[in-house]
Write a protein that binds this DNA or RNA. Structure first.
Length: 559
RNA sequence: GUCCCGGUAGCUCAGCAGGAUAGAGCAACAGCCUUCUAAGCUGUCGGUCGCAGGUUCGAAUCCUGCCCGGGACGCCA
């Protein structure tokens, strides 16, 4: 069991003190008590915390909020709640100025917990599966996939930290039309490579990756496939293409620091009869009917625009059917929360997928589908086109080579997934203070450098320090920020907003730089203060490194 | 036509389970290196929070309608 973190503890004490004061002043009964809301005012002159309790009580108590505020303040046990002074302001806000000495405990907590600092159990070990990327193995990963990968990986990291039991899965669409197309596309490129003619199918894959793959086949097998019977040849190309492209995808993801626990094959669902079972299951529940020679799923029962075909006239399944079987399989594996991360171009399928989840007898909240919006690349102020069809697409791998791994990870996660992302390559590449990645990494390197020099100057950096010496404004700011970390983690996890992490880490870096410029850490004239500041630096370094690790960015020791 | 996302400072974006004078970075302007990395810091300038109604003591935040931008609407995946 983790210690309740310092900041939470102080906040709940203050809330309790407010509640007790309201009861003592007989402004409301236990039953009438509104939820105590504590907020941190933007303006420092409004204190460390503020509550709107008096305004909330105005109706119940039938009094002027300012008067209510005064009555509450009279009854508050300031000592117990670590409150130094209280103001009443504006329409009836009660502003609390805290005795900030409790903040130094944050440093001790960070030392005790190390990289576990920030962990919580808000997730209560719930078994969550996050399925992401899941790009068809018909080409290399491009920018949209990279965004999904960065989002999914960071979300998984942050949810793990918040106490969820997370599995990361990649669904391999290794069955269906697109794989037949892949085989045919390879065939065309193969023929081209040996000087034979073959027309590219309408929806063939025209990317450079397929051309390269075909050339590779010529190198290793010569004209061997040309001599083969077409069916056999296509089967070979199918197998080879799948294997090769999937391998490439795995390598790309690994290089992007995005690990998966599980790679789930669509084909396996067919092989084990699970697709058929899914249809049977829906049929038994009365959501299946036949019309125009096709088999339909009555998804309109669950709010869909129209019913969806499960089995086409030609007897084959639509993509939806194995997907339903797949989700049933996920549920069977015991996950109580499913998160799918899809690109914006798939948002139209959310309703039918959720309909299927419900038709199978589950709450629609079991499945949470997060959509990542489109990515546009910019270079020299101009939009860089990225079309898979023309073969001129910029792949994820190329982007990483172009701007660097850390910058790519950071840029993809620093914006809300709901926003379109303008990826500024010049900015990502620039080794300047414009670049937020360098700004944040520099904070970490700066601390490392200070610690090194402190050691060289003979300061005992491991010594126990008197943290009560940390009273300067910038020190308090930094301590407060460090204290916020656990809440940032749990909020990013529960709201599924991993972009909160880069925002936090930027603010933390900003507090560090600001402190650095205001106060001198290593001061041999003031050894005790130096020790206290070194302790603060070490704590800051721990949190910086941990937060960067969550978003998949390295924390360099020197720059 | 229907659905999804966005519309906040000149630019890119945060804030959105309602709270006080709406924030950051960049850009522009003015300062700070004989002192722990200036890849840094400090200050100034800059906004009818798309528009119009509504709910509320209080709305960028919630509701309704409209406008603009992007995306999706297949018995493809």
């Amino acid at each position: 069991m983790l210690d309740v973190n310092v900041v939470e503890q102080v906040e709940s004490q203050l809330k309790e003190a407010i509640k007790q004061a309201v009861l003592k002043a007989e402004l409301a009964s236990q039953e009438e008590m509104p939820q105590v809301v504590l907020e941190t005012p933007k303006d420092k002159s409004h204190g460390d915390y503020a509550t709107n309790m008096a305004m909330q009580l105005a109706r119940v108590a039938k009094k002027n909020p300012r008067q209510i505020a005064e009555e509450i303040v009279e009854q508050i046990d300031q000592q117990k709640a670590s409150v130094k002074s209280i103001d009443i302001a504006g329409p009836g806000f009660i502003n609390f100025f805290m005795d900030t000495s409790y903040l130094t405990d944050v440093v001790n907590t960070i030392f005790d917990q190390g990289e576990d600092y920030g962990q919580s159990n808000v997730g209560q070990d719930e078994r969550v599966q996050i399925e992401f990327v899941s790009a068809n193995p018909t080409g290399t990963l491009h920018l949209g996939h990279a965004r999904g990968a960065a989002y999914g990986d960071t979300l998984a990291n942050v949810m793990e930290k918040a106490g969820y039991s997370v599995e990361r899965e990649y669904y391999i669409n290794d069955a269906g039309n697109q794989i037949d197309n892949l085989a045919k596309s390879i065939e065309v490129r193969y023929f081209e490579a040996i000087g034979e003619e073959k027309d590219m199918p309408e929806d063939g894959y025209r990317g450079q990756d397929i051309i390269d793959l075909a050339k590779g086949l010529v190198d290793s097998h010569g004209r061997q496939f040309f001599e083969m019977d077409e069916t056999e040849r296509l089967q070979k190309f199918r197998e080879h293409g799948l294997k090769h492209l999937l391998h490439q995808i795995k390598q790309d993801l690994e290089a992007f620091r995005v690990p998966f626990n599980s790679w789930f094959s669509e084909m396996s669902l067919y092989e084990e009869g699970k697709v058929e079972e899914a249809v049977t299951s829906l049929r038994e529940k009365g959501y299946v009917y036949e019309e125009d020679g096709a088999v339909w799923f009555r998804s309109t029962e669950f709010g869909d625009d129209k019913d969806r075909v499960l089995i086409k006239q030609d007897g084959t399944y639509t993509y939806l059917t194995p997907d339903i079987a797949y989700h049933q399989n996920k549920i069977n594996r015991g996950f109580t929360h499913l998160i799918n991360i899809w690109g914006a171009d798939h948002h139209g399928y959310v309703t039918r997928m959720k309909a299927a989840i419900q038709a199978l007898g589950n709450s629609k909240d079991l499945l949470d589908i997060k959509i990542t919006q489109m990515v546009n690349l910019f270079e020299n102020g101009e939009k860089v086109k990225m079309s898979k069809r023309t073969g001129k697409a910029i792949t994820m791998k190329e982007l990483i080579e172009e701007v660097g791994l850390d910058a790519t990870r950071y840029f993809f996660i620093m914006r809300s997934n709901d926003s379109h992302l303008d990826f500024d390559m010049d900015l990502a590449r620039s080794e300047s203070n414009d670049n937020p990645v360098y700004y944040v990494q520099y904070a970490h390197a700066r601390i490392c450098s200070m610690l090194k020099q402190a050691e060289e100057k003979g300061v005992d950096v491991e010594a126990t320090a008197d943290l009560s010496l940390l009273v300067a404004e910038k020190e308090i700011d930094l301590l407060k920020r460090l204290g916020d970390y656990p809440q940032v983690i749990s909020e990013a996890a529960t709201k599924k907003m991993p972009h909160r992490i880069p925002q936090y880490v930027f603010d933390l870096a900003s507090d560090l730089h600001s402190f650095y410029n205001a106060e001198k850490v290593i001061d041999l004239e003031q050894v005790e203060l130096t020790k206290a500041r070194i302790a603060l630096m070490k704590a800051t370094r721990t949190v910086l490194k941990d937060a960067l690790q969550i978003i998949g960015v390295h924390a360099p020791e020197q720059m």
